[in-house]
Design a binder for these strands. Structure first.
Lengths: 102, 102
DNA sequence: CGGTGGTATCAGTTTCCAGTGATATGACAG
DNA sequence: CTGTCATATCACTGGAAACTGATACCACCG
């Protein structure tokens, strides 16, 4: 039982636009142009967010000519899911485990 | 399949200190005094974070004399785990689903 | 009642980061 | 090789939010 969630990964995924990107990439692999269309964000802004996601290991990049495809790494998300599931289970087991007043 | 993660909840949980609080509360129900001991944070700061967690529905409060006990709500965490699990599964299924270059 | 300890609220400050514009790099088309 | 398009990098800025200090509130104890 780990019951510890990766804080850095959380901070990366807590941004609305980044979470939107991740959600889109969970459906299909896309390049920056597609993401600009889908999100309506500025190219620079998007590129910055993709950089954060890349450096956090959330997405993989695959150059294709002058395009760059972004692919979500399912294992990273799955691991986070497990961490939260563990946390929830721990909380259920410790429901009535109350420390005494000092 | 929802494949959409609650952004507001993510923002609430993305703070290091709040995540620390949640992790502690997953093991046992505690009051503010205990949390001050465990985290080393100032009382005011902690109270502010607990307020955020309470308003987000992540924790329940239970007054006990002049103490206030905080209890983690497992279902909220579990739901988040499911959302990420769905997202990961969606990403696995869409692994080779690549949209054509424009 | 008066004092003490636990908790909450408020206002001010500081820190951090998402968004932006300008610009650089690199690949293809002509 | 020249222009154009896709993407990345850099420096800057505005605003949100984490932290802090002062203070108020409430419950217990003497």
């Amino acid at each position: 039982m780990m019951t510890s969630v990766d804080t850095d990964l959380m901070r990366v995924l807590a941004d609305p636009l980044r979470l939107r990107i991740v959600t889109l990439l969970a459906k299909e692999t896309l390049c920056s142009t597609h993401l600009i269309e889908e999100t309506g964000a500025k190219q620079t802004n998007l590129s910055n967010h993709l950089r954060v996601l890349r450096e956090a290991g959330v997405v993989d990049t695959e150059p294709c000519g002058r395009y760059t495809y972004y692919k979500l790494r399912p294992d990273v998300i799955a691991q986070l899911a497990v961490q939260f599931a563990d946390l929830a289970e721990s909380a259920r087991n410790a429901a009535e485990n109350k420390r005494a007043c000092p």
